[in-house]
């Protein structure tokens, strides 16, 4: 498979009053053509910033400070903001978490979708509206032609997120980045959106990167999952292998601490003690070492690198001295 997106050694810093604090600390990720990658991690692990940095949408005072991000043969991090602007929407589509604040409240949804089309592909306005209706139909909005004239507040949360997806798809992107698109939605709507994105991906052969904190949610969607902790990738694996054979202690802890519909009720859940480190206050060595039950001497001094997990499926890599065998630098 060809890599559509290839991120190598990405670092992102926050400018703090007290100096720069590293949020993303050398992330390596690849997304193949037509592949869907799930990025899982807790708040502050750098999962959203990683993706925002690719399209030049990092917030103020946060900057990508190193690494390359190769997209279809070009380094995104080296592009001018004008080049990135042209790329956004046409090659890379984005869906954000909160569909209410991501839509312009005083603009009809049809006009918002059409605007994306007019700017991206220089389509004429009537043709763009026609296409907008098609897109709304594509994302499963009933009577799409009437909905074109609706304002965002007239739509429900699930419908708004569908509109966001329609905007994300407007330029027929090769890569769709979804940043926790279902977190604000109800379970039944969540499931609908996951299904929708999976269908669209299969139909158009796009690559999808789905950012979430919910491991279970993307089990049914992703081909591959990367688990992030404190700004690094700690495990990267095909989806079925990850759930069958979680290797990094953090992944294991996460999976074990999730209540499921099959565990023993009222039992104590195995939980990971402590909290993730703040950016800029990372421990030396493995960032997970202070919370890890399997910690050894080497973990507190050296940083483990992503290495193939011995005896597991190809493509299953983890960054751990203890469970992934070798990998020490």
């Amino acid at each position: 498979m060809n890599a559509l997106l290839d991120i190598r050694g990405l670092t992102i810093d926050i400018d703090r009053d007290s100096g720069p604090a590293r949020v993303v600390d050398g992330i390596d990720l690849t997304v193949a053509e037509g592949e869907s990658l799930g990025i899982v991690g807790e708040s502050g692990c750098g999962k959203s910033l990683t993706m925002l940095s690719l399209v030049g949408l990092l917030p103020n005072r946060i900057r990508a400070t190193g690494g390359v991000a190769d997209f279809a043969g070009k380094d995104l991090l080296a592009m001018s903001s004008e080049e990135l602007r042209r790329l956004r929407g046409s090659q890379i589509g984005f869906i954000f978490q909160d569909p209410m604040t991501s839509l312009n409240p005083v603009m009809r949804v049809g006009a918002q979708i059409a605007e994306a089309l007019v700017y991206q592909s220089g389509m004429a306005k009537p043709a763009a509206m026609e296409r907008a209706a098609e897109l709304l139909e594509l994302v499963g909005i009933p009577s799409p032609r009437d909905r074109l004239m609706a304002y965002p507040h007239e739509l429900s949360g699930g419908m708004r997120q569908r509109v966001m997806i329609a905007i994300g798809l407007a330029g027929s992107p090769r890569l769709l980045i979804a940043d926790e698109p279902t977190t604000a939605l109800d379970v039944t709507i969540q499931a609908q959106i996951v299904d929708l994105v999976r269908d669209l991906k299969d139909r158009f052969g796009m690559s999808v990167v789905w950012i979430t904190h919910d491991l279970a949610l993307i089990a049914g969607l992703a081909d591959r999952i990367a688990v992030l902790y404190a700004g690094t990738v700690v495990e990267d694996s095909p989806v079925d292998v990850l759930f069958e054979r979680p290797t990094h202690p953090y992944t294991r802890g996460l999976l074990a601490s999730l209540p499921t519909l099959t565990d023993k009720p009222m039992s104590r859940l195995p939980s990971i003690a402590g909290t993730p480190p703040e950016p800029g206050r990372r421990p030396p060595g493995c960032p997970f070492a202070p919370r890890c039950a399997l910690v050894t001497a080497v973990c507190t001094t050296s940083v483990p690198r992503l290495a193939p997990v011995a005896g597991s499926a190809p493509g299953h890599r983890a960054a751990c001295f203890v469970t992934a065998g070798e990998g020490a630098s």
Partner: peptide
């Protein structure tokens, strides 16, 4: 039944074969 069926499962195979509740509240 629909709510239960919408609960994401950590079994990737099970997750792709669920019944879906249509529409919204």
């Amino acid at each position: 039944r629909a709510l239960l069926s919408a609960v994401p499962s950590t079994d990737p195979r099970a997750a792709r074969t669920r019944q879906r509740l249509q529409g919204e509240v």
